[in-house]
Simulated scan of single mutants.
Amino acid sequence: MPRHIVCLGFDFDTWSGFAARGLTTPSPVSRGEFGVLAAGRILDLLKRHDVPASWYIPGIVIETYKARCEEIVAAGHEVGHHGWTHVSPANLSPEEETDGLIRGIDSIVRLTGRRPAGYRSPAWDISDHTVDLLIEHGFLYESSMMGNDHCPYFVRRGDIIRPDQPAVFGQHTSLIEMPISWSLDDFPHFEFMRTKEHVMPGLMNASLVLENWIADFDYMQQTCDWGVLSYTLHPYVIGRGHRMLALAGLIEALAKRGAVFCTLEAAALEFRDKFARGEIVPYP
């Protein structure tokens, strides 16, 4: 029987992403802090529709906004690892990355009483050491890569990629990749950013973005019997009024199409079981 899974992942960054870019003045901090208010709106919406979700929270955000994070846990949602800070592991030394991973795990254990099953890299970039660290610390899955659109797969390690040579691929691991996409992320569509280096216009019409997001589910439904589509949302982005209406519209439209909503952890476990039974041959 066909089964089409939808995972809503909320990157609860607040101001940590701006701080990682050196933006620590009051205005960007307040822009990120709107996400604390918006998280309450989102929790109410998820409760009304009985939709479980996965929340990826940097350790510094857990330690700053404990009450809101406790509400996320009390509502039954998954809490995944999203770094200690929002600095990409690719920009950290191996020692800094290890320390941040452990500090983030410790924060999640204090919050939830259990170790996180999933990891999502800040800024969706990992280092040459990340995969080994995640396996060492017992993660089931990670969700920072884009090698498929609606089928999980097993992460490789040890790839050798040079600009002037054919690729040499490493070995697959037991770590499950729950793929994501910038096209299914609210930030590039909606957020206006101005720095010394560039301007990111954002501010797109939410109804048009909603059409794209629904169409990706339609394509999955038309082309495979089993799949997982992950949407990535940031409370301070999606939590604005007209975008909340779009999020509600997305949930309602996908529910009418027969979508099964679950956490990324639950979807990863289902994928692992189907692979073990030989029902799925993942790519890449």
Rank of each mutant, 00 (worst) to 15 (best):
M1Y: 06
M1Q: 11
H4I: 01
V6R: 02
W15T: 03
W15E: 15
A19P: 04
A19H: 10
A19W: 05
G22D: 13
P26H: 10
R31C: 02
G32R: 09
V36A: 15
A38W: 05
A38D: 08
A39L: 15
G40L: 10
L46N: 07
L46T: 06
Y56M: 15
P58F: 09
G59W: 03
G59H: 07
E63G: 01
Y65M: 01
K66M: 04
R68W: 00
E71W: 00
A74Q: 08
A75R: 04
E78V: 02
E78N: 09
V79M: 02
G80M: 06
G80K: 04
G83I: 04
G83Y: 03
W84N: 14
T85E: 10
S88R: 10
S93M: 00
E97A: 05
D99G: 06
G100C: 13
I102G: 06
G104R: 14
L111Y: 07
G113Y: 04
S127K: 04
I135T: 06
I135L: 14
S143C: 11
S143N: 11
S144W: 05
M146K: 02
Y153Q: 12
R157D: 09
V168L: 11
T173N: 09
S174Y: 00
L175S: 04
L175T: 05
L175R: 03
W182F: 04
F187Y: 09
F187P: 00
F187K: 02
P188M: 06
M193V: 15
K196R: 13
M200G: 12
G202N: 12
G202P: 11
M204F: 13
A206K: 12
S207M: 14
S207C: 12
L208P: 01
E211I: 09
I214E: 07
F217N: 02
C224I: 11
D225C: 01
W226R: 05
L229D: 08
L229A: 05
L229Y: 03
L233S: 05
P235M: 08
Y236F: 12
V237R: 02
H242Y: 11
H242E: 15
L245C: 09
A248H: 14
I251K: 10
A253D: 08
R257P: 05
R257F: 04
G258T: 06
V260C: 14
T263H: 07
A266T: 15
A267S: 12
K274D: 01
F275D: 03
A276P: 00
R277P: 02
